[in-house]
Each structure stands twice: as C-alpha cells, then as structure tokens.
Design a protein around this nucleic acid. Structure first.
Lengths: 120, 120
DNA sequence: TCTATCGTTGACACGGGTGTCAGGGTCCAG
DNA sequence: CTGGACCCTGACACCCGTGTCAACGATAGA
C-alpha cells in the first residue's frame, strides 16, 4: 500500500511515516516510480511505534526494541551483542518504573474523580 | 531547603527545578535574600513530576493532575470545573493505554531476552 | 489535454524539556 | 578581606517529534 493509505489506517500522516523511516523504524520498498510501498503488517508496526512514542520512548530506543517484538521469534544473533542485551535489560527496568509511576498516579486520579463525583 | 539540596535529593538540577516552577508545578517560598526555599515534602513531589515527565506526560497535564494526588484528599471545588473533570477522565484513559502498551512491549522484550539467554 | 490528487525531497519553524553560559548577588571559611 | 561555593535572572542553543510549505513528478478521471 502507499503512504497515504497507511497514514489513514494508522491515524498518522505521511510526514510522520517518512520521519519514522529516516529514524530507521520502518523500511518500505519502492515502486518503480519511486513511491513507497508498505506491507500490510506495517500497520500494526506503526501503531506500535506510535503507542511507544506516546508512552514517552524516543525513536532511538524504539528502534532497538522493535526487533525483539517479532512473533514468532526470529532471533538474529548478529544483532544481539552483549551490550545491546544489557541496554535492553536496562530499558525494561525503566519501562517497569514508568508503568508503576503511571499506574500509581492514574489510580490516584481515578480515586479523586470518584470522590468528587460522589460529592457532586 | 535550598535549590541545590533539592536538586541533589531528586537527582535533578537547579535548572530543572526553576523550569518546573515556571511551569507552575511547584512554588517555593523565598528567603529574605531571594533564594528559593523548598519544603521537605517537595522532594516526593519533584520525584513524582520527574516520573511523570519520563513517562511522557507534558507539564501542562502534570499541572492538572498534581492537585488530585494530595493525601489526605483536599478537594478544592473551585478547581474542579466540569471541563477539568472531563479532561482528567480523558487523561486517565490515555494513561491506561500507555500502561498497556508499555506492559505489552516490556513483557515481549523480557521474553525475548530470556530466549536469547537460554540459547547463549 | 487539463486538472485534481497523490507522491517525492528538502527546508524552515515550532513547542517542549534540558544544558550551558554570562553577569551579577550572597554567604561563609580562611 | 578575599576565594570559593552557592544563589539569582536571562539568554542562547540543542534534540526530538511534528506541522507546513515549496517545487517538482506520477497518475487517474473529465
């Protein structure tokens, strides 16, 4: 599919898709005329990218973790240098902290809302 | 306490603390000489702010949710306009989505790591 | 064929969070 | 009283994710 359709399907814009490409997050083929040609599975991939960006991860990190998210597992040992594994482990810890922080605060807000609504 | 100590305790910098203040997230008193004077409880507050920032929330939103996080509850009805309650509800939903996205991807990475380590 | 729509690249601009530096004041220990 | 460590404000500059626009090429329908 072409860039416009992918943008529509992922509620993003062509601009962003080109940006993600420049950051090395997706690499579409090209048609003979130079147009980008995206596989269907990239819809999910882009949605995932957008979710992670919205969650606060930079493209630099997203690029590293994307290869780990393929299912079924296709593990490329060439990619899996020890430093990179350390980086990933480190990143999962940061993600866990983010999750805890978000959860704690979301629950507090929800409780606040329920109290306020009760008094209303 | 002064800005340097708070920065040390929160692993941030004076620069950031002044920035958070300009964004209306914290409002320290002033000593006679103009130096900022921070209460102890602001350590936790700043850590919370930094956690939320790291999780991807903008100061604009953090500013809105901070008043909901006081315990024991001190609900200021003047602050709780209906639009603001809607905003907050909306924001909790976004936070939930972020949490799900982070959790899903973190777990996938962890599983990837365990597979790789097993093969090593 | 003309035109509208979509694609290409490249550039400029903006807002948000941060780093850094300049120019100046305060305070304390030697 | 002087040196160093800390504070103040304000500005410039960076990176990052996006928006927008210009100038151009491809495609499809009237």
């Amino acid at each position: 599919m072409r860039i416009g359709e992918l943008a529509r399907l992922t509620e993003s814009t062509p601009r962003l898709l080109r940006y993600y490409e420049k950051q090395g997050l997706i690499t579409p083929r090209r048609e003979a005329n130079g147009y980008r040609d995206y596989d269907d599975y990239l819809v999910d991939r882009v949605l995932q990218i957008r979710g992670l960006l919205d969650a606060g991860l930079p493209t630099r990190i997203i690029k590293q973790i994307l290869p780990c998210l393929d299912t079924p597992r296709t593990i490329h040992f060439a990619d899996a240098t020890p430093e990179m594994l350390d980086t990933l482990e480190c990143e999962t810890e940061r993600m866990t902290r983010r999750i805890q922080c978000l959860t704690r605060n979301r629950d507090a807000i929800m409780e606040y809302l329920s109290v306020v609504r009760e008094l209303a």
